[in-house]
Amino acid sequence: METLSIKLNGIAVDVLSDEWLDEDVINKSPIILQKVEKRKGGFTLYMKAPTENIEWYFSRGLTIIQIKQGSKGKFLHIEHEDGLYWVDLPAHPELIKFLKEFMEEEG
């Protein structure tokens, strides 16, 4: 397993319903990404939220990773294919390079 230890501030969003609108986002929390670990078939984000530690698993082929432009500059959007949870992080070159193999699979 490859591991990238990195400290990045971001936002994690967890939607608890299949039928949601932008204003229905349930759990939106500031997080600190502490490390990313590649595993067979995907990767895991290890994050610290104000009240808990979070581990989110993303699988090859079921994850959408995009570099987007926001009001504060470019950011990395990592989303589970079903849209029920995602993380927005600074577009840090080291993180992008580490996850490049998962980004290139996008059509």
Rank of each mutant, 00 (worst) to 15 (best):
L16H: 14
L16A: 13
L16R: 13
L16G: 15
L16I: 15
S17M: 12
S17Q: 14
S17F: 13
S17V: 14
S17D: 15
S17R: 14
S17G: 11
S17P: 06
D18W: 09
D18Y: 11
D18A: 12
D18E: 13
D18V: 08
E19D: 15
E19V: 12
E19I: 12
E19W: 06
W20P: 00
W20E: 00
W20N: 00
W20C: 00
L21I: 08
L21F: 13
L21M: 11
L21Q: 13
L21Y: 12
L21E: 14
D22P: 11
D22E: 13
D22W: 11
D22K: 08
D22G: 12
E23H: 09
D24H: 08
D24N: 11
D24F: 07
V25W: 10
V25T: 10
I26H: 12
I26A: 13
N27F: 13
N27V: 13
N27T: 10
K28Y: 09
K28L: 14
S29Y: 03
S29C: 04
S29T: 11
S29E: 08
S29P: 00
S29I: 06
S29D: 03
S29K: 01
P30I: 08
P30N: 11
P30K: 06
P30W: 07
I31P: 00
I31S: 01
I31M: 03
I31F: 03
I32V: 15
I32D: 09
L33P: 01
L33H: 01
L33N: 01
L33T: 02
L33S: 02
Q34M: 08
Q34L: 11
K35R: 15
K35A: 08
V36Q: 03
V36L: 08
V36S: 03
V36A: 10
E37P: 04
E37H: 02
E37C: 08
E37D: 09
E37Q: 14
K38S: 05
K38D: 06
R39Y: 08
R39L: 08
K40H: 15
K40P: 13
K40Y: 15
G41M: 04
G41Y: 05
G41N: 05
G41D: 06
G41K: 02
G42I: 02
G42T: 03
F43G: 07
F43L: 08
F43A: 09
F43W: 07
T44G: 04
T44H: 10
T44V: 14
T44R: 12
T44C: 11
T44L: 15
L45Q: 01
L45H: 02
L45G: 02
L45K: 00
L45N: 02
L45F: 07
L45T: 02
Y46G: 04
Y46Q: 04
M47C: 12
M47R: 00
M47Q: 06
K48G: 01
K48H: 05
K48L: 09
K48F: 01
A49G: 09
A49Y: 01
P50Y: 02
P50G: 04
P50M: 02
P50F: 01
P50V: 01
T51Q: 09
T51D: 12
T51A: 09
T51W: 05
T51V: 07
E52D: 13
E52L: 10
E52G: 06
N53W: 07
N53S: 13
N53E: 15
N53A: 10
N53G: 09
N53T: 12
I54P: 03
I54A: 04
